[in-house]
Amino acid sequence: MLAVDGISVYHGDAQALDEVSLTVDEGAIVAIVGANGAGKTSLIRTIAGMHRPASGRITFQGNEIAGLPSHQVCNLGIGQVAEGRQIFPSLSVSENLDMGAMLPRARGARERNRQRVLAMFPKLAERLAQAAGTLSGGEQQMLAIGRCLMGEPRLVMFDEPSLGLAPTIVHDVLKTIRDLNAEGITCVLVEQNVAVSLKIASRAYVLENGRITLSGTGAELLADARVRQAYLGI
């Protein structure tokens, strides 16, 4: 469904990604693990069209998307639940959800998607008129996911969705990701919580200093001695 082929990305003089390649099959959960600063967020933002790769190709459902502006990439059905949630704090919860449905692909289905999101996250339904900045961290994460779903994505990239959340809420977020996947949404999961993300991933990549150094099924990486030592502390 998504194929990243040898992309390199620079932020000024600093190289963030070095010839990174990966594939995401339709219906999969693909985990990308790596330390802080390894380039995970750069990778996601490059796929999303927020950074332009210096070289390499990105294809989504057979179409070249590298270099397309982010609003066009989104409109192809690539959604993003970004690091730090990136909600609109002074807009109401309802307005935040609306902003997810500004894409031409999703405008017509706005009401249906809104009902679906509110059924999935009843807490948001209770707080529709409230400014999003006043929500708790977990509620903001639900809003970020709900806002993304308003755009009718076929593939969702989750960037550190459990960062800064209480353990019980982390559990909810991961369950939500599995549920969405069961509904047919392909997922890319970037997580600092390596053990959990490898457990639910059908395929996984290890990113170190802007390079892919290991790949395999989630179970294979979970059993790999290097992964266990570097990321699981076993």
């Binding site: 927020m50 982010s70 989104c74 990136q86 704090p89 807009l91 902003m99 997810g100 500004m102 993304c148």
Partner: peptide, 22 residues
């Protein structure tokens, strides 16, 4: 909605790019 989208850009520019606002 367009007015709200402009407020969204002022509120969080990264967020605006994330949801695919032009």
């Amino acid at each position: 909605r367009t007015g709200t989208a402009i407020r969204a850009c002022a509120d969080n520019l990264t967020g605006a790019a994330v949801v695919g606002l032009d």
